[in-house]
Amino acid sequence: MELFTNQVLAGIATGAIYACMALAVVMIYQAIDHLNFAQGEMAMFSTFISWQLMQWGVPYWAAFVITLVFAFFGGIAIERVLFKPLAKAPILTNVAGFIALFAIINSSAGLIWDFTIKQYPTPFGSAPFLGSQLISTHQAGMIGVTVLMLIGLYFFFQYTRIGLAMRAAASVPESARLVGINTSWMIALGWGMASAIGAIAGMLIAPVVFLEPNMMGGVLIYGFAAAVLGGLTSPLGAVVGGFLMGIFENLAGTYIPGVGNELKLPIALALIISVLVVKPAGLFGRHIVKRV
């Protein structure tokens, strides 16, 4: 039983990483209706910016805020320059665009900061949290920040005019335009916010997985899976999905014999697919009704 609780705790700790990433994925899905494959790379690039700032002697929290601002405007810039022209192109062409963006950011980061693994500081410290060996104060901090972000986003979307406008632009663009919402800028804003959330996720994850241009590869896969598991239309679902994903993965690694590190991911994915077969819109997702 002790083993079980410990594994669940460790799962929650890794799950926090996935939850962060899944939240960013869902944010951009809400705004543009596509899964952004370059999301992880955008987060990685922002994290490198903050690292560079700290190398230049900027204190952690100042670097944190500057990076958020950079990520926000960077996200908007990417949408305006690269993806606005593709708004009318077929969806699959857009997906190819994400893959291209992925290649560009990954390769540029590799050239600027090279591929060696870098240490990244944590503001929360890495002592054991409340005396538990499995969960450190950093991981607890990470869970805290994720929950705070979730609450913040909830209030933003539910109680502010601009949040309402963004929701309207995402769900019924035509009607939103008729009531005077600038839907094109709402999409750009969605990109900016998703990029900033991704940057937060990146800066929280970096102390755990270490900083390097490919650090997001594995995390993003889990993030996507978590977002899909929770239902792509629900930010709360994304966070819950992230934690479940972490727990799944740890329990599968511990209790199913013959599952090494290599088979953890396929097993976690297989579990998710079985969930999806029963609930095709994810755990918390809204079932989308199509008009014929």
Partner: peptide, 22 residues
Amino acid sequence: KGLSGAVFGVLLFLVIYLVPHG
């Protein structure tokens, strides 16, 4: 050599801008 990924990405972008339907 160092930026091959980025060049590939840019070329891909060019293609999908010019001919979004391939």
